[in-house]
Nucleic acid binder design. Structure first.
Length: 203
DNA sequence: TCTTCGATTGTCT
DNA sequence: GACAATCGAAGAA
């Protein structure tokens, strides 16, 4: 792949809400045993610092959220519900805990690989949830802390397609009722319809 | 050490 | 639409 296509550090140093919006349409690339698996990001959520009661870092630095405190551009992968892995991109400068959760992807490269990971469910549901896409892309805790800006990393994000604002929708974040107001109502979930991405890709 | 509960998913009714 | 699965992190004791 061309290293110039990989999103650079500066991209992740923007405000986390900006990164969450701009990640829509970009290409998540997983390299595994010489195979390249990729898909277009179509749903994200922003988690913004200690003050955000929905953010894992709301009560300070812990062993689990340690990676959130690193400089933007690293992968924060954590385990939840006893069975699911979640993929986040760390944002902002070192010491400021913010991250974008990747909630959904449209697979575009190496479909057979994903099919083998997700043999039990229909194609349209392979990557339409945060834990589904980590399973489809074989992402787990071993990737926690991966530098997404390095060409040799097994997980990177490349420049994908530009999505005009009128195709992007936003809403409150999912599954964070415990956080209370105003955090539960912040419109920090960003998503785009799969059909809009297909049209942009011409597929 | 003990208890609670989760940035979810899949199954069953 | 309701709920069980499943286990580690985090907070309380």
């Amino acid at each position: 792949m061309n290293p110039a296509d990989i999103l650079n550090r500066d991209f992740y140093l923007q405000p986390v809400q900006t990164v969450a919006r701009q990640l829509l349409g970009q290409r998540l690339v997983r390299c595994l045993n010489g195979e390249r698996i990729a898909g277009i990001i179509c749903e994200t959520e922003a988690y913004d610092g200690k003050q955000d009661q929905a953010c894992h870092a709301h009560s300070g630095l812990t062993e689990r959220n340690r990676i959130m405190y690193t400089e933007g551009g690293h992968a924060y992968v954590y385990f939840t519900y006893g069975m699911h892995w979640m993929l986040n991109c760390v944002c902002g400068s070192q010491g400021y805990p913010a991250a974008v959760l990747i909630r959904a992807i449209l697979p575009t490269e190496n479909i057979p690989f994903i099919q083998r990971q997700r043999v039990d469910i229909p194609q349209q549901h392979w990557c339409d949830g945060p834990a589904k896409l980590t399973k489809a892309f074989n992402i787990d805790g071993k990737l926690n802390g991966t530098d997404l800006c390095q060409a040799e990393s097994s997980l990177t994000i490349e420049k994908g397609i530009d999505l005009p604002d009128h195709q992007v929708q936003s809403s409150a974040r999912i599954g964070i009722a415990y956080a209370g107001e105003p955090w539960v109502s912040k419109p920090w979930r960003f998503f785009v319809s799969e059909s809009a991405i297909r049209i942009c890709l011409g597929i």
